[in-house]
Design a protein around this nucleic acid. Structure first.
Lengths: 340, 340
DNA sequence: TTGTACGCGTTATCAC
DNA sequence: GTGATAACGCGTACAA
C-alpha cells in the first residue's frame, strides 16, 4: 500500500507552471484569473487529484467549519435522533460534526469540551447537566458560539432549544381529565436534569389548574429507563389509593411501568391508564400501542443546528430561545376511568 | 461577550521572556529544559489559560488524532450502539470522532469521505454498501487506514469486523428444528448489503445441512424496517403452504412481521414462530418477548476501533478479520411446531 | 492578470 | 539549556 504523500497546491502550481497564489485564486473562483488559466488549473488539479487541506485552511482562516456536539450517550435512541437532526443541517452547511459522549459525567464533559475547543470548532451544541460547573463556565466564557439543549441555566445567557414545556403535558392532562381521571401519578426523570424538573413542574401546574388531585405521594422519582419504570410499578401498585392514570416522563420508563404493573396483576388500560413521552418508533406497534406525547427530537437537533449556524455568523446577536411544540398522540394505553 | 483571541504559545513566550521553542519543549516535557524554567513556563501557561491548538499541531505533525466514522444513519438504534462502541475506544486513545451519515446514498458517501479525508483523519471506519464504487475505491487507494464493518468486498483487502455469520443463525436453526419446524421462512434485508447476503447464504446453508425445506418461495425479499415486516406478513400469510416458523434478518422487521401476521389472524407463536436478529433493548419486554439472535453492536464498534488504532500505528501489517460470535436468545415467539 | 511574501500556531533542527 | 529559523499547506494583501 503506497504511502502516497498528499498532493498540495504547490504540486498543482508546479504542474501548471503558475504561481501558488494563482492556483489558489483560480480554484477559489475569484474573478481575477483568466478563464483559460482557470481551466488549465482545474484540469491539472483534477488530474493530480488535488484536494485542499482543511487543516491548513482552518489554521489560516481561524475557522474550522466543524461543530462539536456534546451529549450523554448516542446509544440512547432519542439522543441519536437528536444528533441526526443536528447533522442534517450542519452537513448541509458544509461543516463536519465532532461527536462526544459524556455519559453525564462532569469530568468527561470537561475533557471533551477542552478537546473540542482545542480543535477550534466553530461552535458547540450541548446537552449538559453540569452547566453550573466552574470549569465549564470558564470555557463557555471564552465566547464560543453555543446552543444549549433541553437543559439550561438561569445564569447562562445562551441560545436555547427545548420542548416539552407546556403544550403536550397540558393537552394530555386535559385529555385524561376528560376521560374521568382525577388521581394521576407521575414518574419523573432524574431531577438533576432541568428538563426533568420542568416536566414535573408543568405537570404540577396543570394538575393544579385543572383541579386534579395534587397529593405529593402521586409523584414517584425515577430515571429515563425501562428499569426505572419496572421499579416504579412497585411503588404505584403498592399505594393504598392507587392512581387511575400515570404519566411517565419518557416512553422507555412508560413501557417498563406497563410491564411492571402487568406483573402485579394490573391491566393497562383497564386498571390504570398510561401516558408516555417521546413517541419512539416502537410506540406505535400494536403490542405496545402507547398513548404518548410526541417530542420531535430530530427537529430539536435541526433547530439547535440552525441557531448555532446563525450565531456563528452573528456572534453578538441577542440570545434566542426556541421551544418546539409537542402534542399528544392518543393510542391504546389510556381509557375512561372506571368509577369505583 | 468578548471575542477573545486565542492565547498562543507566543503569548506564553512573551510572558516568560523565553523563546517559543523553549516553551514548546518545556510543555512537551522534553528533558532538555531546566526544571525551574519548565516550572515557570507551566505556571505562565496556566495563568494565561494557554492550550495548544490542535489545528496547528495537526498541520505540523501531518496527523490529526481524529478518526472518521461513516454510517448510514445514527438514528437507527443498532448504528448508534455501534458508534458508541467506536467512540469508547477512540476517545480513550485521545482521538476525536468525526461522524458522517450517508443514508446509504453513494453520492453522499463520496462527499462525506472526501471531507473526512480533507480533514486529514488518521483513519476511517465505514459501514458501506458501495464498496464497488469507482470513486470510493480511488479514495481508499490513497492508503488511508480503514476498517470495513459488516460489509466487505472480495477485492478490497482491508481490516474487517463483522458478526452474524454462522453461529447465531445455525444455532437458531438447530433450535427450531428441535421444536419440530421443517418449513422455515426467511425475510431478508436489502440484498445490496453484503451482510444481508451473507445472512441469507448462512440461512440457506443451514437449511440444507439440516435437511429442512429449501423451497425458494420461503425467502421473502425485504428491508431492515418495521414496515418491511408488515409487508412481508402479507406475503407469508398468503402462501398456500405457510411456513411454521419465520426468520427475520433484524428485530425491527421481525416485530413488524409479528404485527402484520396478527392483523391477518395469525398468532405468534401458536400459528407461526418468529426469530429476530439484533436483540434490541425492547426485545426483552413482555409485550414483545422476541426470540432473537443477539448481535453485539457496541462490541463490534469497539473492535473496529481497536483494529483501526492498531493499523494507524502499523499501516503495513497484514489485514485482519474479526468475526464476533452471535448467540441465540430464546424468548416467547418460538414454540413447538403444531403437527398438522 | 499573475507572482511574491507573509502569517496562521506548532514543532523539529540546528546553532549558540 | 536556550534561541532563532524553517516548515507544515493554505489564503491574501500587495507588488509587478
Amino acid at each position: 500500500m503506497a504511502e502516497r504523500r498528499r498532493v498540495t497546491i504547490k504540486d498543482v502550481a508546479r504542474e501548471t507552471g503558475l504561481a501558488v497564489s494563482t492556483v489558489s485564486n483560480a480554484l477559489a473562483g475569484k474573478p481575477l484569473v483568466r478563464p483559460e488559466t482557470r481551466e488549465q488549473v482545474v484540469e491539472a488539479a483534477r488530474r493530480l487529484g488535488y484536494r485542499a487541506s482543511l487543516v491548513a485552511r482552518s489554521l489560516r482562516a481561524q475557522r474550522s467549519y466543524a461543530i462539536g456536539v456534546l451529549i450523554e450517550d448516542v446509544a440512547n435512541p432519542s439522543a441519536a435522533a437528536f444528533v441526526r437532526g443536528v447533522e442534517d443541517l450542519v452537513d448541509r452547511a458544509g461543516c463536519t460534526l465532532l461527536l462526544a459522549n459524556t455519559d453525564g459525567d462532569v469530568d468527561r464533559q470537561v475533557a471533551a469540551m477542552q478537546v473540542l475547543l482545542d480543535r477550534g470548532v466553530d461552535g458547540l451544541v450541548m446537552i449538559s447537566q453540569h452547566l453550573a460547573d466552574e470549569r465549564i463556565r470558564e470555557m463557555l466564557a471564552g465566547g464560543i458560539p453555543t446552543v444549549l439543549v433541553q437543559r439550561r441555566d438561569p445564569e447562562l445567557d445562551f441560545d436555547y432549544v427545548g420542548a416539552d414545556n407546556s403544550d403536550g403535558i397540558r393537552e394530555a392532562l386535559r385529555y385524561v381529565k376528560g376521560l374521568g381521571h382525577h388521581r394521576i401519578g407521575y414518574l419523573t426523570g432524574p431531577l438533576v436534569s432541568s428538563s426533568a424538573r420542568e416536566r414535573l413542574r408543568t405537570f404540577r401546574d396543570g394538575v393544579a389548574e385543572l383541579g386534579l388531585d395534587a397529593s405529593e405521594e402521586l409523584v414517584c422519582h425515577g430515571r429515563y429507563s425501562l428499569d426505572a419504570g419496572l421499579e416504579a410499578a412497585g411503588y404505584f401498585s403498592g399505594m393504598r389509593q392507587r392512581p387511575t392514570c400515570i404519566f411517565a416522563s419518557n416512553d422507555m420508563s412508560a413501557i417498563g411501568l406497563i410491564q411492571g404493573l402487568g406483573e402485579r396483576g394490573l391491566d393497562v388500560p383497564a386498571d390504570v391508564s398510561i401516558v408516555g413521552l417521546d413517541d419512539i418508533e416502537l410506540a406505535r406497534i400494536k403490542a405496545i400501542d402507547l398513548t404518548t406525547i410526541r417530542l420531535e427530537k430530530r427537529e430539536i437537533g435541526a433547530e439547535a443546528a440552525r441557531l448555532l449556524l446563525r450565531r456563528v455568523d452573528r456572534p453578538d446577536a441577542p440570545a434566542r430561545t426556541v421551544i418546539l411544540p409537542t402534542r399528544l398522540i392518543v393510542r391504546g394505553t389510556t381509557s375512561p376511568c372506571a368509577t369505583r
